[in-house]
Design a protein around this nucleic acid. Structure first.
Lengths: 355, 355
DNA sequence: CAACCGGACATTAACGTTAATGTTCAGCGA
DNA sequence: TCGCTGAACATTAACGTTAATGTCCGGTTG
């Protein structure tokens, strides 16, 4: 497969007895070229199957027309959708996508920054592992436009897009309350990211507004696996373990709000093993509206995240940042998620478990 | 964020009164440089935060140390895992990943090829949309090493890795038969790819070996959405529609083997609506062992695909192709999938539906 | 002591493209 | 007819790096 050498502008110039510059201008449609010549050049380029070398182009133009996309875990359906929508929109604007997967590992994240700098990407869209915002600060100092995706690093001045997790947590909780829940437990991932803190804040706000107390043990944490293992479908299993601990309690909550729909799977399993019915014995509210959630038994009420919109805005923000145009958009953009009501909160009889 | 100009080798050379070449050699650890000088250079590079420009490097070396990864749909959990494992291994070998999403669209695929050529990737790993292998032939002629992933294009001489779908289809079917199924229906995606044809071939082989007939209507097709919509979680819904058609039949099959676990979700729903129980009224065998499949109710018996192994081999094959080393590996590699037995085929009573 | 050697660095060229600046010459007006 | 103009092209430089040669010089060798 070690094919023939690629044809360059110089080759075409040589066979047509033209200068390299003329060929370049002819092909890129600039003026100052005779119509006859242009046609000749185009024909020859076509004939030899000329493909412009965008590495050389990048070097002289100082821009690689490439975005760096740094994602923690493509196996998270939300991120998978983000990848798709970002790739599509970036390409529509002429940019390619350099993908890096960090797997929630700060070490990989640091390396990713270095890699982005080296390849002189035009900009980068990043889901930070968080905890430390230092690696990403580096990008800014060197002048790489950066947009934070889904998770914010407030102490950097970067633009960011994400879902309004506080609102999501609020809506999930308020919905449960409106369906009669009085004691609610939250199952959240154990990561130091704004996303999760926001959701919990929303939960607390909804509880407070309803005058409900949030006793100790209302927030349960599901441990996170990192690095290589992050891509593995671990989440339902880990959530299942935590759910079993929950179900050993003397007093069970009326509803459980989970941090993502994988957790709901684990919870469903634990409930089934305990002979408890959703929603009559316990209501479950998910987060993410994953592809399977509408098809669970019972179908899962969940907070739908506007992945496509978030991805599109991320690209738009980055494009604005690159073109340097001040925009009327806010620096930090939060898209409101919507609650999708399904059977897992459709409580008909109110068979409250008694202590 | 339009930061300061990046420091180059020339800057360092100037401040240290050295030649550019010396600085380059000092930093890249080549010999012919005095220890004192090397230390000086390294210190200065550190001080100014020097980052090598890999675009320039790529230009002179003729290799961008980049792989093109062309995937149809990241929202397919199998591909999501492939992306993760390929990215990890590629990066471990010093390669970056240029991601393209085709969404099963031949138009996007053609554009992707052009884009790969332009960016002079060192090689590419490709899930072809298939039907036409022409765009990919182009890569070969220009000398871009290419490995086909998961779907083969037999008429090109490219290396390929994938799962042994024939074996997968066979094992799924044979398992159903071993659990007492005599009439089996297959639900497959409506795509002209080897993957699906192979699975069906495996199904037929298993049926033939058991002396069972495959009447018309045994293979049902689930239509595919393309392009932008390909990322959407459409599959369970479409499969549900097809499953409803199936359940209107006078004579229902003992088992249904589906082309991917999303389809199983749609089937579960349709069965539940018809008041039919899995596995006692009908057994279901999935394909893919998606993250949710172990947590369905009942847990889904399914064919597990060795995503990580396939991804790793894809990278290895590409590396071999690039280094030009003939290897002892076969050109086409098929990894055997394994059957994961769960409750959806654990038939205890044999309540065969009668016509 | 002259010739040689090799370490340590400098100089030059090259990668393929684009941008800036030159050159040529036909056509035109004064 | 002379000089000017501008279209159509050529030439040169530049992007930042690496590779191939060059040069210098102190030290070794016969």
């Amino acid at each position: 497969m070690a094919g023939p050498r690629r044809h360059t502008l110089r080759d075409i110039a040589a066979t047509l007895n033209l200068s390299v510059n003329t060929v370049s201008r002819a092909l890129s449609g600039k003026d100052g070229i005779g119509e006859r010549t242009r046609a000749l050049v185009r024909a020859e380029a076509e004939r030899v199957g000329y493909v412009p070398n965008s590495v050389a182009r990048s070097l002289v133009l100082g821009s690689a027309m490439t975005f760096g996309l740094v994602i923690t875990n493509p196996s998270n359906p939300f991120y998978a959708q983000l990848i798709s929508s970002i790739e599509l929109r970036a390409r529509n604007h002429g940019y390619s996508l350099l993908l890096t997967v960090t797997g929630e590992s700060e070490e990989y994240e640091t390396r990713a920054v270095e890699s982005l700098l080296r390849s002189s990407v035009s900009g980068s869209i990043v889901v930070p592992v968080q905890a430390s915002s230092d690696p990403w600060r580096r990008l800014g100092t060197v002048g790489v436009p950066t947009v934070l995706l889904n998770r914010d690093l407030p102490d950097l001045g970067y633009r960011s897009v994400g879902t309004d997790n506080e609102l999501g947590g609020y809506r999930a909780t308020a919905h449960a309350i409106s369906r009669g829940a009085r004691s609610i437990v939250v199952l959240e991932e154990d990561l130091p990211i704004t996303t999760i803190a926001d959701r919990i804040a929303g939960f607390r706000r909804a509880m407070a507004e309803a005058g409900l107390s949030v006793p100790r043990g209302s927030i349960m944490r599901v441990p996170t696996r990192r690095q290589e293992q992050a891509a593995l479908p671990w989440q339902p299993q880990e959530a299942y373990q935590v759910a079993r601990r929950l179900l050993r309690r003397a007093r069970l909550p009326d509803a459980v709000v989970v941090g993502n729909d994988y957790f709901a799977l684990g919870l469903y399993r634990a409930l089934e093993e305990h002979g408890l019915k959703v929603p009559d014995d316990m209501m479950v509210i998910g987060f993410g509206d994953y592809p399977f959630s509408a098809f669970l038994s019972p179908p899962l009420t969940t907070v739908r995240l506007p992945a496509e919109e978030v991805g599109d805005i991320a690209v738009d923000l980055l494009l604005e940042e690159i073109s340097g145009g001040r925009s009327d958009r806010p620096l930090k953009q939060l898209i409101a998620p919507t609650l999708v009501e399904r059977e897992s909160t459709n409580r008909t009889t109110f068979a409250r478990t008694l202590a």
